[in-house]
Amino acid sequence: MITVSSAAIDTAATLKAFEAENQGSGAIVSFSGIVRNTANSNTVTALHLQTYEPMTTTGIADAASAANQRWPLNGLHIQHRIGTITAGETIVFVAAASAHRRAAFEAVDFIMDYLKTRAVFWKKEITTNGEVWIEPRPEDYTDSARWTT
């Protein structure tokens, strides 16, 4: 399931529902990304994310298909917020279910690397010192490159 929405993410409820949908899986791994309240010594109040649909959701769906081809997954849930997300709020939630833990861990890691470097989002950081459009860090690209070998 893929959701790109401005609605708040209830991670506890979403994880509980995902577990119920994937009964019988031996491993469920989830990741929650939270908007940090500091960056480069600035106080971050919020992030603002733009998307271009349908390219954003289509791209995430392609990444999900790649994950399903690469690992034996029973379920995959990707939920990403757009619009303005306040510091401390959950911006992304990814969960994967598989028979064994390694596949679930790696699939979530793979999806997060896609979301951090290639997903069609434009992200503005809103701080107490101003606003700035931000791009992936070099280490984000290094992380993502792990999956091409």
Binding site: H80, K123, W133, E135
Partner: peptide, 25 residues
Amino acid sequence: GEIAHEPANINGATEIALMPPVGGG
């Protein structure tokens, strides 16, 4: 909604998006 292979003719396109490098999620 499809990345253009430039230079491309824009006749016939109803929506043209100019996209800087993505920022990631």
